[in-house]
Nucleic acid binder design. Structure first.
Lengths: 250, 250
DNA sequence: CGCAAAGTTGAGGGATATCAACGAGTGTGG
DNA sequence: CCACACTCGTTGATATCCCTCAACTTTGCG
């Protein structure tokens, strides 16, 4: 369930050359939950799929801005890399999420997207999307919504980083991740953490040790069950209580 | 310079009724630094201006999503309010910035925008903007850029919250604020903090005491000069060094 | 099997929140 | 114009949380 990626995928390789699979506009819309009500859609437009091996970067910070990407399967980490070598994980996008939106303004990507498992993305040339959007109100609205959704998500993250203590952050992360899986049709109480403790720590503004300790304590308290990357949420209510223990918020 | 708002403005009142001033599309584009190269622009479209008194909210969390707002003058604080009463300042938008973008997705505002001084905004009905965007590639690109710019800014903020220590955060804030003033034609080394220490603390994920202490220490060290809300940056290089003192980043 | 990366756990200290008292600025009403 | 109250800001003492350093175990992989 959580690992549909078989060894076949890996052998298929990095180059999407051989069977350059693609998605129709309707399929893309379905993936992203857009309703293409009405609108004179040219069904011939198609979006090329690209496979990304675990550990490979879909794009790197500083690359010229090109397409944006809709994740079809897999998980990524989105990382902000400063010239000084600073390293900040900004999120863990997964299927139905869109990558690369941050490059629009500066015309080059400001972040790097690394696959945490073998993944597959649909390549969406941004100019083409904009053109299609001009004809279809629904599509245009959709791009706006994508961006707006991302903003809202980052607001939540700023709240998490700004006003929660370490354990609250970890608890909130687990609950939010559960919701994201639920929205995709998976269990919201049993899932795998695809990222390392280090990446999780970076995302949550904590060290890996603190993350590890928080998880251990939740486990001991019976709120969750952790074994390596496998997590099972046993007492979501308890986790919510822990989140409510904000530090310096009113 | 930093306080063009006179007592007259205040008497003009909250209701934009009397002289319902407005901005033409060209004026709006100039304010937001958009180039309307070519494109068949209907010059009759105009955008109503609205005054917002200090301390008044432009919109509140939960309000039905309506227009977005381009700030013409003044400063706001953008606050995320949770049902639990949690309070997180997300930013301090000022002239040329746009407010309300986060409401697009959920169709209601998730945050609240409060004026930190008497301010003036242009009301942009979002559907109208989308319609105009459909006709003009430049305008459409612009909306995308607005959203993308906001994303990039919040990435910076997540980096700040996730990997910097208290003094580094305050130093980074001062430098970034200076840049923002510079881009608007003001001094980047001498400006006023329009927000309280409490709001600043919320924004930076610190308590007001810690913010105060950091500023005092920078002052004593000769890097800046603070008197109440007035700040003068004397040694930007020093501030940059302090920022470089990241906590747990590589 | 052996190595490297990832994760866990413990001890200790430093950074920052908390609590508390005070000072300064601001607006209000007498 | 001053007294008052209130918010805002500063500073100090103390407590606490989490980072740092370190050792060890486990997992993954060639």
């Amino acid at each position: 369930m959580q690992q549909q990626v078989t060894s076949l995928d890996r052998q298929a390789g990095d180059q999407a050359a051989s069977r350059a699979a693609s998605l129709s506009l309707n399929q893309l819309a379905a993936l992203l939950n857009i309703s293409l009500d009405g609108a004179n859609i040219d069904q011939r437009v198609s979006f090329t799929l690209r496979r990304v091996q675990q550990g490979m970067a879909l794009y790197r910070a500083g690359d010229q801005f090109g397409p944006i990407y809709a994740i079809r399967s897999g998980t990524f980490k989105n990382v902000l890399l400063d010239a000084n070598g600073s390293y900040q994980v900004l999120g863990f996008p997964m299927a139905s999420d869109v990558l690369g939106l941050d490059g629009i303004e500066a015309q080059h990507y400001r972040t790097e997207a690394v696959a945490l498992e073998d993944s597959e993305v649909a390549i969406i040339p941004f100019p083409r999307l904009a053109r299609l959007g001009g004809k279809s109100g629904a599509l245009q609205q959709f791009v706006y919504r994508l961006l707006s959704r991302q903003l809202a998500r980052e607001h939540t993250q700023m709240w998490l980083l700004g006003s929660l203590g370490a354990e609250s952050r970890v608890a909130a992360f687990l609950l939010i991740l559960g919701e994201r899986y639920a929205r995709r049709g998976y269990s919201d109480t049993r899932f795998n953490l695809r990222m390392t403790r280090l990446d999780l720590g970076s995302f949550l503004g904590l060290t890996q040790e603190t993350v590890s300790r928080a998880l251990s304590r939740f486990d001991q308290a019976g709120a969750i069950q952790v074994r390596n990357k496998e997590v099972r949420i046993l007492d979501a209510k308890r986790l919510h209580q822990i989140v409510a223990h904000a530090r310096h918020a009113s």
